[in-house]
């Protein structure tokens, strides 16, 4: 069994205190930003929502590109032409 020295315990206590302080600071900043935006979401919910949106964007982009490819095959034209006909740009810039 490894022995844990008092020095190690003391160092960890200091680390916890520092982390606690940093956590408080960030929590205050998050609360302030949420209040400005009238948001009631928790940090975890903000992250989940962001990831969900990115996923939705990726999936819709894949679906859109696949469908335009099918149409261009059927019409024997370029994918770019299909986009133009639909009134959309191919790139997201």
């Amino acid at each position: 069994m490894l022995t844990i020295t008092d020095q190690k315990v003391s160092r960890t206590k200091n680390e916890v205190a520092e982390l606690k302080y940093r956590h408080q600071q960030l929590q205050e900043e998050f609360n302030k930003l949420s209040a400005e935006l009238n948001s009631t979401l928790t940090p975890k919910q903000v992250m989940d929502q962001h990831i969900k949106r990115l996923k939705e964007y990726n999936e819709l982009r894949d679906a859109g590109l696949r469908l335009t490819q099918l149409i261009s095959d059927e019409k024997s034209c370029k994918v770019k032409d299909v986009f133009e006909e639909m009134g959309y740009s191919m790139s997201d810039d």
Binding site: P43, M47, R61, A63, F83
Partner: peptide, 29 residues
């Protein structure tokens, strides 16, 4: 979690852009 959430909120414009792009690609699809 807090740091990431703050980063997302601060980059609010980027988030709006993602929403715009979602609408765009939904329209295409």
């Amino acid at each position: 979690n807090l740091a990431q959430a703050i980063k997302i909120i601060k980059a609010g414009e980027k988030e709006s852009r993602v929403l715009e792009l979602i609408e765009k690609w939904r329209g295409v699809a």
